[in-house]
Design a binder for these strands. Sequence first.
RNA 1: GCUCCCGUCGUCUAGGGGUUAGGACACGAGCUUUUCAAGCUUGCGACACGGGUUCGAUUCCCGUCGGGAGUACCA
Length: 491
Amino acid sequence: MVFFVVFFHSMRRKVFVMPVRTRFAPSPTGYLHVGGLRTALYAYLFARQHGGTFILRIEDTDQSRKVDGAMERLIEALEWSGLQYDEGPGKGGAAGPYIQSQRLPLYREHADRLIAEGKAYRCFCTPQRLETMRSAGATKYDRLCRSVTTDESRKRAEAGEPHVVRMVIPDGGEVLLHDEIRGDVSFAMDLLDDQVLLKSDGFPTYHLAVVVDDHHMGVTHVIRGEEWLPSTPKHVLLYRYFGWDVPSFSHLPLLLNPDRSKLSKRQGDVAVEDYRDKGYLREALVNFVAFLGWNPGDEREIFTLEGLVKEFSLDRVGKAGAVFNIEKLNWMNQQHLKLKHDADLLPLVRPLLAAKGYAVTDDAYLVKVIGLLKERIVLVNDFSDAAGYFFRDPETYDEAAKNKNWKPETGAHVRIVTDAFSASPSFDAASLEAALRTVAESLGVGAGKLIHPVRLAVSGVSNGPSLFHMLEVLGKESVIRRLHAAVERLG
RNA sequence: GCUCCCGUCGUCUAGGGGUUAGGACACGAGCUUUUCAAGCUUGCGACACGGGUUCGAUUCCCGUCGGGAGUACCA
């Protein structure tokens, strides 16, 4: 079943129906910003929820900011996060190409059309002149080149004189626009600049490209960051100039640093890749970022991507910026870690341990280790420290634990436990626990007097998973060997 | 400066003309437990300020203050 969004075109009282199409349109700067991930996520959720299409479009119209491999990295990060796009680079689609630098003739054509209709004009002013104006206090271009005649303009352009194309902003009046999140917002036309649409290198500026592409790609809902709100009136004007229907706009609140400025590098990690590399699960990062500015209206907090698709709604997106709070992300990561099946963590954990130099050949064994540890760590990467003794006999024993739990008589007691373990018909947690408790009883000591030393002897540390389950996973041979070694070394 | 947006616990937020202003993270205490986590119980903690409107404002309106964004041949 496909859902449709109905647009009421009030002027003509005509109703037309069109399938939802949203897009994520990042500029390839070298990585995927978590704010970008949140924007992409909302656009994705909205599209999926309405049975619509989610498009990825690369906005690479700034030649001076080209970064090699940036687009590939961005796509990789987006795919890691689990947001699958339906149309875009590498995926194709009827509205392609989806890389703006490959659509140059289209923008040129539209700029020419505007010029021909008197809605844009060539501007031959030099960057130096503009700079001088600005330093003299000007806040807008003085529209000098508007008075260049059509004829002269054409001749100078044909003669190869460098120029840009600017849009004509009408005098007086205001632009009223509706934002799904903020309601009606109006801007005085007099404050708008004669925005550059086409740069002297032939590339479009964002303003032209975004309008032309959103229209030609059939984007019905523009979902983007709040930083775009001030330039939206120019976009609305362009839609009108071209005679196109204006899409629905949703300007999302910004993600903030702890000091409430726009989330930036310098004050912590902003790249999705950073979080991935630190050991955050995609599920956790997506869940967390979804809740920065949105909530389902009840008290549920842990969601999968599928769950978010079901519950998401633009109506419940807040207006105020949200501080990116690592503590809560950590907690969410823990929650998602607990939710994951042990075997599903295997591909994430195996390389970590391999990098540590452990011989991880037995996947079944590793899955058991994961099961024991996953509830007591925060990040996936924590496995590499926490799992050490499952792959290597302890070389040292925690000093504090030794002082606390290893008394003069302990060695003898552990020896008896070792014998009991050796004699145990089966090496499962329940049998081992029974064996140890029997020993404790016969010695007339509390079970803790044996449990703690055995843990220390076997793992080298004083904390970890349930002891008997840990012993079961380690296996008889390894446990007996370690107990002997510990008695030897600790007395 | 100008324009626009925003303002509930430290943080993420629910709520909305009459509520003991709810939840989550973090922090404190306790319970549980063989340790560590987890879990459970519990504590601390907020409607920026000032005017209106109203019988009654945290909620609606205006202003102030505060914060943010934008103000490029960047996106």
